[in-house]
Simulated scan of single mutants.
Amino acid sequence: MYSSQMDNQTFKYTVLLMEGLKIAPQSNHLAFIFLLITYIFITVFNIGVLIHIFSEKSLHEPMHILFCHLPINDVIGATVVIPRVLKDVLSDPSTRYITYVECVSQAFFNHLYGTTSHTILMIMTFDRYVAICNPLRYSSIMSRKMVVKLSVGAWGVALVLVGILLGLTIRLSHCRSVIQNHICDNASLFKLSCESVVINNVYGLTFTVVLLTSSMGSVFITYFRIAMICIKSKSKATNSKAIKTCSTHLTVYLIMLISGLIPIVLHRLSENPEGRKLASILFHVVSPTLNPIIYGLQAKVIRQKVFKLFTKK
């Protein structure tokens, strides 16, 4: 049933069977409609906010330019998962085939989305720190050159880390052909092999720990220092600016962190694979849905345009 290839004594299936979600037949169409509407919302609103920032000159500031990476990443994260799930929801479980190349590609962009969700918010944290702790030097520190460096760093680090992660996996041979998941990820791919995956597990665990430690550490230290400045400052204007500037970023970060940690915890502790799958989908849905709303309404120019649009209607 499956085609395969032999290369230097390495056996790999070129077509895999995706286990997918186990949804009751009577709920298939409801799940499909919900996910489809959610995907349309994510795509339209994120791209809409992106276009508005680029077209509105008053929004061409480092804070908004750095934010642009977030809707781009959110659209990638939703696109790499939701269309595939939509297809499988209406497909017979025995026909949910995916090629090995497609599976590796999906796993790569899946992990890239998760990694850049942290690195992008980390560079946005740096921008908020400079704006509040060094307001007089903000323009000189957050120059166009610095914005480019931070942007390249956020995506470059993620590309390298994820590239190594998947590189260690695609070197393995296969003795199985079923992806025991609803989407392709690194763990699902290396579980196809009967070879030793100690290196994969060690690197994957180290990768996760370093990323989470760096992400949470930078946010905690930054907001601790901002809080200290607010406590020492007697200026209501400074404190008001800090709260307004940081509350949006912190809200988005906490939503991303919580929705991202739930599938990791369930993967390690839960005996319910369907609950883990659902949590994984929510990670690709919750943040991309809420981010344009939270940031869009926080930016005065975007908020006024949205209100004006609804007032006209």
Rank of each mutant, 00 (worst) to 15 (best):
residue 89 V to I: 05
residue 43 T to W: 05
residue 168 L to C: 08
residue 286 V to A: 13
residue 62 P to C: 11
residue 62 P to N: 08
residue 273 P to Q: 14
residue 130 V to P: 00
residue 96 R to K: 10
residue 221 I to G: 09
residue 241 K to P: 01
residue 215 S to M: 05
residue 24 A to F: 07
residue 142 M to C: 12
residue 100 Y to N: 01
residue 247 S to V: 05
residue 166 L to C: 08
residue 275 G to M: 09
residue 22 K to D: 05
residue 278 L to V: 04
residue 208 T to S: 13
residue 302 I to V: 12
residue 288 P to A: 10
residue 199 I to T: 04
residue 232 K to F: 09
residue 193 S to E: 04
residue 200 N to E: 06
residue 233 S to W: 11
residue 223 Y to V: 00
residue 92 D to S: 09
residue 144 R to K: 14
residue 164 I to N: 10
residue 164 I to L: 13
residue 149 K to H: 15
residue 267 H to G: 08
residue 25 P to E: 10
residue 49 V to T: 02
residue 194 C to Q: 08
residue 41 F to I: 04
residue 312 K to L: 08
residue 184 C to Q: 02
residue 189 L to T: 01
residue 248 T to C: 13
residue 72 I to R: 07
residue 61 E to F: 09
residue 158 A to P: 02
residue 85 V to I: 13
residue 279 A to R: 00
residue 161 L to P: 02
residue 277 K to Q: 04
residue 154 A to W: 01
residue 89 V to P: 00
residue 56 E to Q: 15
residue 65 I to R: 07
residue 153 G to H: 12
residue 233 S to I: 05
residue 231 I to G: 14
residue 179 I to R: 00
residue 313 K to R: 12
residue 127 D to H: 09
residue 59 L to P: 01
residue 166 L to G: 03
residue 45 F to A: 07
residue 112 L to G: 00
residue 116 T to D: 03
residue 139 S to E: 11
residue 185 D to L: 10
residue 224 F to C: 06
residue 22 K to V: 13
residue 2 Y to E: 05
residue 188 S to A: 13
residue 60 H to R: 11
residue 155 W to H: 13
residue 170 I to R: 08
residue 273 P to M: 05
residue 65 I to V: 15
residue 61 E to K: 15
residue 194 C to H: 14
residue 170 I to F: 15
residue 287 S to H: 03
residue 137 R to V: 03
residue 51 I to N: 09
residue 282 L to C: 14
residue 137 R to E: 06
residue 66 L to Q: 00
residue 97 Y to P: 03
residue 185 D to R: 04
residue 214 S to I: 05
residue 221 I to K: 12
residue 84 R to F: 08
